[in-house]
Simulated scan of single mutants.
Amino acid sequence: MRYLPKETAKTTLEISTDSAEGLEPSIARFLNYLKVERRLSPHTQQSYSRHLAVLASQMPICGLVTWTQLDEAWVRQLAVKGKLAGLSAASLRQRFSALRSFFNYLLQREGMKVNPVKRLTLPRKARLLPKGIEVDEVQKLLNLEASDLLSVRDRALMELLYTAGLRLAEAVGLTIHCLNLESGDVRVVGKGGKMRQLPLGSVAIEWLQRWLQWRATLPRQGDALFVTAQGRPLSARAVQKRLAQWGRSQQLSSPLHPHRLRHGFATHLLGASGDLRAVQELLGHASLSSTQIYTHLNFQQLASVYDASHPRAQRRKPSLDRS
């Protein structure tokens, strides 16, 4: 049996120089396929690249120089080694999702006969419910003093995240041409390059108008809707930092990040309307199962109200007084 070398805790996005030359071109073509044909997000592309780097760096040490030499036993050994190295179930699933996609590509495009990952069974990923945000917390957050360029920008951005339920990448990717404030809608490019048109609330429209007035005063302007004080496109990391700061300054009960506003949008809208399909369309979910998680959130809220209010909801301890 070919034994795998010890897995390093850190890998780069580049394939190791020790990798066989025959392995690298297929990986490069696959990553280009993800970018050009499947149009996956840069984050997903980088994740796949990292996991393939681990595989390609270990194969030559085991005497494997072509992808066709891989078999199911070798891949299972890779899974066991990852688990022993402390990888979580979620990380293992992500790794072998990348490998499964890569080998499917090799089957379709490069003449590989068998996908060695096809029959591999991994532990199921625990589905964690997203941490939402209450309506009163949203009101508290957005009741902020906004009188300068950055605070007006942040208020407009947070209003947009909450009123349209945008992903962070979707928000920072917006251009001024995506907005139509007269008709009250925004065009968003979501996952897989899918376009969707979303309605805007009156408060969001008001703050976006204010922000555009401030934006027009900047010395350099591109097409990005949200920019820095220097006119450069606002990065996702900068948005995360700014929202975290606003969460602290507005004294929210738990840390604020952009996705909490998206969760709040979905939960509050679903709770008020009960229309799961409509919420699915607004969120840009390809599958209804992704949206159904918000029905669990609503049930949890109902259960907490029940536990706090119903006289027989809480099981009482039996009395020790038998006299």
Rank of each mutant, 00 (worst) to 15 (best):
Y3P: 13
P5F: 02
K10E: 14
E14H: 15
A20K: 05
E24I: 15
S26D: 12
F30R: 03
L31N: 05
L34Y: 05
L34D: 00
K35W: 09
V36H: 02
V36F: 05
S41N: 04
P42T: 09
Q46V: 03
Y48D: 00
S49E: 10
R50S: 10
M59K: 08
P60V: 14
T68F: 05
L70H: 05
E72I: 08
A73W: 05
W74N: 05
R76W: 07
R76K: 14
V80K: 11
L87K: 14
R93D: 11
Q94M: 13
S97F: 07
S97R: 11
A98M: 13
R100L: 01
F102H: 06
F102A: 09
L106W: 08
Q108P: 01
R109E: 15
N115A: 04
T121A: 15
R124L: 11
R124A: 05
L128T: 14
K131H: 12
K131T: 14
I133F: 05
D136L: 05
D136C: 04
E137W: 02
K140H: 09
S147M: 12
L150I: 11
L157M: 03
T163L: 01
G165H: 04
R167V: 06
A171M: 12
V172M: 01
L174Y: 01
H177F: 10
H177T: 13
N180F: 03
V188K: 12
V189I: 14
M195Q: 12
A204G: 11
I205Q: 13
R210I: 01
R210Q: 11
R210W: 00
W214C: 10
R215F: 06
A216M: 11
T217V: 02
D223A: 15
F226H: 04
L234G: 09
S235L: 07
R237C: 08
Q240Y: 07
R242P: 09
R242H: 11
R248Q: 07
Q250H: 00
Q251I: 04
L252C: 01
L256D: 00
P258M: 02
R262T: 01
H263A: 00
F265H: 02
T267H: 01
L269D: 02
D275K: 13
R277C: 00
V279Y: 14
V279I: 14
V279G: 03
E281K: 11
G284M: 00
A286F: 03
I293V: 14
L302S: 07
A303F: 06
D307F: 15
H310M: 10
P311E: 08
R312E: 05
